[in-house]
Computed example of a mutant assay.
Amino acid sequence: MKIYDITLPIHPEMLHWGRKPEVHVVESLANGDASNVTRWLLGAHTGTHVDAPAHFVDGATPIDQVSLDTLVGPVVVVDLTHVRGDVEVAHLTEAGVAGQRRVLLKTSNSAGPLKEAERAPHWVGLSPEAAAWLVGQGVELVGIDYLTIESHRRTDTWDAHHALLEAGVLILENADLDQVGAGVYELVCLPAKLVGADGSFARAILIDRS
């Protein structure tokens, strides 16, 4: 059995969409306290995280109520590192994604923009048409290796997010797939149980039992 940790490390200098995490020392052994205690200020969408339907749909399922059956189970990783621009329907059909329940899109982001400290001007995202196609295929979770699954050309309208989240499809973002080959794995993705939240940072691993 081999385990791939696809979770980004969380720290104050990490890649982040908005404000980066802050760490404050509450107690420290060096200062004569009984233990080391820190307080972290970070957003729900920090690092590797899951978008719940409530992220874009008022009254929809928050992260503490999403199904663990969706977050744990077989997942197919598809190699789309050759794609430039948006992932389109043709790319997904060629990769054999049809009928899959959970899909992770490995793109050139993993070895490129995901490794940078600041947000890139361009990245590989999912086109709205491809998002709608995945919904039609019955996908329950789709992930990608960048800050957002959205195309860099659509961050004013967020069309892919609307298509997926309005259909109840969970989105896993910032999955580090650089060392993961194409194939079928067991996904274990556990977001923090933040009550009523629109999403949550998560520890996500892939297990290869072959």
Rank of each mutant, 00 (worst) to 15 (best):
M1S: 15
K2A: 15
I6V: 12
T7F: 00
L8K: 14
P9Y: 02
H11A: 10
P12W: 03
E13A: 13
W17R: 13
G18M: 09
G18H: 15
G18Y: 11
R19L: 14
P21A: 07
E22D: 11
E22G: 06
V23S: 12
S28R: 10
G32H: 07
A34H: 12
A34D: 03
R39S: 03
L42R: 14
L42E: 01
A44Q: 12
H45E: 14
H45I: 05
V50Q: 00
V50A: 08
D51V: 07
D51Q: 08
P53H: 00
H55I: 10
F56P: 11
V57T: 11
A60S: 03
T61G: 10
P62S: 05
Q65R: 13
Q65A: 02
Q65T: 05
S67Q: 05
S67D: 15
T70C: 14
V75C: 03
V78Y: 03
D79G: 05
L80Q: 13
H82A: 13
L92Q: 07
T93H: 08
T93R: 15
E94C: 12
G99Q: 10
G99M: 03
Q100R: 15
R101S: 13
V103H: 07
L104S: 02
L104R: 04
L105N: 01
T107E: 06
A111Y: 14
A111R: 02
G112F: 07
P113H: 06
L114I: 06
E116C: 08
E116L: 15
A117L: 12
E118I: 02
E118Q: 11
E118K: 10
A120H: 09
P121C: 09
H122S: 14
H122E: 14
H122W: 14
V124I: 07
L126K: 04
S127T: 02
E129N: 10
A130W: 06
A131N: 01
W133H: 10
L134Q: 01
G136W: 03
G136N: 06
E140R: 02
L141P: 05
V142W: 12
G143K: 00
T148Y: 01
I149F: 12
S151V: 04
S151N: 01
H152W: 15
H152F: 12
H152A: 12
T155L: 08
D156R: 14
T157Q: 15
W158S: 04
H161P: 09
H161M: 13
H161W: 13
H161I: 03
L164H: 07
L164V: 03
G168H: 01
L170P: 05
I171Q: 06
E173A: 09
D176H: 06
L177W: 02
L177D: 04
Q179W: 02
V180N: 08
G183D: 09
L187R: 01
L187S: 05
C189Y: 08
C189P: 10
P191N: 05
K193D: 01
L194D: 06
V195E: 15
A197E: 11
A197H: 09
D198Q: 15
S200T: 07
S200D: 00
A202T: 06
L206F: 13
L206C: 03
I207H: 09
D208L: 02
S210V: 07
